[in-house]
């Protein structure tokens, strides 16, 4: 019996050593995981909250594009709902909320499609992925409903089908990936009557946002929300006031998965810490075993 355990430990050590050898020659991928895949032309949306009129047509169009029950679009004109702070839900992937703070502004909210998504990092089955065009999408079949992404998301966007008893999944904005792959605009961008939403490459949108701020310094708060927040987001926001700490949480410019990944990956870096732990344990066992055999022999 003791012999077997020893053999087992030996095998583990051998595997560990070989893995360490392999991992030391393979390039290390940690925080910048998504970067090599992101296209220079990756898309984004510039949300100009100063022109948004809060008509909620984006909500209506979004539901239609994703096959949800839309309801009568005339009912969307009831702006009393704007007074309630809503979050994106499983059948409403985007919501428009009203914020009153030295003036009123309506702000559309949906998945920000982070440049370095925390949800991708947190997903234990690798169901969520950042696509080359900038969108963060997920594979429903792979999703096991662990809800780690909900915890990880700095904007608290992913919604969960709590009402389903069997096989509930995560749902969020998919940047209308089906529509965009057909060359169409995202449904919300397409319907917006005032073009508060501008679709384009992220780089050109940042330039455009800065041009607007420069041309109308009295109209805009001098900050493009999403340019640097949590390492940058595909959706960028312009407003007359600082949105951070009011509409959005105050977030640093470090990537959201940066901290967690550095800890997680650090534990297993080159497989050295696990081997060291096993070696230590093995050593202790070896020493204690030697003593025990000596005792037995006596």
């Amino acid at each position: 019996m003791s012999q077997n355990r020893r053999e087992f430990l030996k095998t583990i050590a051998a595997i560990g050593a070989s893995t360490a050898a392999i991992s030391s020659v393979t390039p290390k991928k940690t925080i910048a995981k998504t970067e090599p895949f992101l296209s220079e032309d990756r898309k984004g949306v510039l949300v100009d909250t100063t022109v948004c009129i809060g008509c909620r047509k984006c909500e209506w169009a979004c539901k239609g594009a994703h096959g949800f029950e839309q309801g009568d679009f005339e009912n969307y004109q009831n702006d009393e709902i704007l007074n309630v702070q809503r979050r994106p839900s499983t059948n409403n992937l985007t919501v428009v909320n009203k914020y009153i703070d030295e003036g009123t502004r309506t702000v559309k909210m949906q998945c920000m499609h982070c440049e370095h998504p925390a949800c991708v990092s947190a997903c234990i089955v690798g169901a969520i992925s950042k696509k080359e065009n900038g969108s963060v999408v997920w594979d429903t079949d792979m999703c096991i409903g662990c809800r780690y992404c909900m915890v990880a998301c700095p904007f608290q966007i992913p919604a969960f089908e709590y009402y389903k008893a069997l096989d509930p999944k995560i749902v969020k904005c998919d940047f209308c990936i089906e529509r965009t792959s057909e060359g169409k605009l995202p449904a919300c961008v397409n319907i917006c009557p005032v073009e508060a939403l501008t679709y384009g490459t992220r780089n050109e949108l940042i330039d455009e946002a800065k041009r607007r701020i420069k041309n109308h310094p009295d109209k805009y708060f001098d900050h493009v929300f999403g340019e640097y927040e949590v390492g940058g987001t595909s959706w960028l926001y312009l407003a007359d006031k600082n949105l951070a700490g009011n509409v959005f949480p105050k977030l640093g410019n470090n990537t959201a998965p940066g901290v967690s990944e550095s800890i997680q990956h650090g534990i297993f870096a080159y497989f050295v810490p696990p081997i060291a732990v096993y070696a230590l344990l093995g050593g202790i066992m070896w020493l204690t075993k030697e003593k025990e055999t000596k005792k037995e022999n006596k």
Binding site: L46, L185, V189, E195, T198, Y199, L205, E208
Partner: peptide, 14 residues
């Protein structure tokens, strides 16, 4: 057209 190159000015509808 909403999907256009020049993003500096809004499209006609907007």
């Amino acid at each position: 057209a909403r999907d256009r190159k020049d993003k500096t000015k809004p499209d006609l509808k907007a």
